[in-house]
Amino acid sequence: EFRFGPCRVENVILLELWEAFRAVKDSVQTQDNITSVRLLKPEVLHDVSDAESCYLVHSLLKFYLNTVFKNYHNKRVEFKILKSISTLANNFIVITSKLRPCVKNDMLSIYKSAHRRFLLFKRAFKQLDTEAALTKAFGEVDILLTWMEKFYHY
């Protein structure tokens, strides 16, 4: 199960997510020509405390659901990419539906710290042309999964 600080998530198998991404990794990453930009930079994901992790993963997965995957469908995509997005997105729905980031006042500073990290990612995304940003964000799902894996307990 995932343990993002106080937030627990079961019924998600990381192997399924890895296999879904690996099936399309090369074709998606090859379409990303702006190799000088990394959205999920070290400053976004390095040394995230347990307490921050629930806020950050909630924001990131919601962004992927509402923006990245949702708009990816408007591009002409191959069938295997549709399938990969479906597996990732439906599992991200399971995760976000079980995350209950705490909203108490004493957690405000932790929330703000996590939000700053998320804004770093979002700003970098918005600075790119939309099509390029969608491709780049999808191509960085391996960075996202690797970070999430640190909170996965077998």
């Binding site: 509402n66 995957f69 949702k70 069938f79 549709l82 399938k83 479906s86 997105a89 439906n90 729905i93």
Partner: peptide
């Protein structure tokens, strides 16, 4: 169509493998 497709992109149906 998974829950994601029916919530976010209801026009999208994916051919079975």
């Amino acid at each position: 169509q998974g829950e994601y497709e029916s919530l976010y992109t209801s026009h999208i149906w994916i051919p079975s493998s």
